[in-house]
């Protein structure tokens, strides 16, 4: 828990400054497509709708997971399903976005935001598209 919380602080400090556009005027600097491993995306769309905390933890940034756990809120309503569209993936180094559709008790389209931490892609935000 201490590790997760500590990571939360640091990630928070860094993340504040990450209001970064992944598209830019300079074409050479523009992020590419499709470099997110398809297998990982499949894992994520299963893990994010899981009601098992351990499975969720493997899909989320540790700080985000710790905050979710502390809030006592469910990540998604039980019975939800998710479909991630790999073709929408936009990657810049170790940061990426990809579109996802949630169906079930509540439905909506979201942009998942991911960071590659210790070699593993994890979700740290999911904004309405």
């Amino acid at each position: 828990m201490l590790v997760l919380a500590g990571a939360g602080i640091v990630l928070a400090a860094v993340a504040v400054f990450l209001v970064v556009r992944l598209t830019g005027n300079d074409a050479s600097a523009a992020p590419g497509h499709g470099t997110l491993p398809a297998a990982r995306l499949t894992e994520l769309q299963t893990a994010l709708v899981s009601q098992d905390p351990a499975v969720q933890a493997a899909a989320l940034d540790p700080a985000v997971y710790a905050s979710l756990h502390q809030s006592g809120q469910a990540l998604l309503p039980g019975g939800s399903t998710m479909t991630i569209d790999p073709s929408t993936a936009r990657v810049s180094g170790r940061a990426a976005t990809v579109s996802a559709t949630v169906k079930g008790p509540r439905s909506g389209r979201f942009t998942l935001q991911l960071a590659q931490e210790n070699g593993i892609w994890v979700v740290f935000a999911a904004e309405p598209a």
Partner: peptide, 13 residues
């Protein structure tokens, strides 16, 4: 952070 339909505050320990 926005996480689907909720905003989460990220705290330290």
């Amino acid at each position: 952070v926005r996480m689907f339909w909720q905003d989460l505050h990220i705290y330290n320990a």
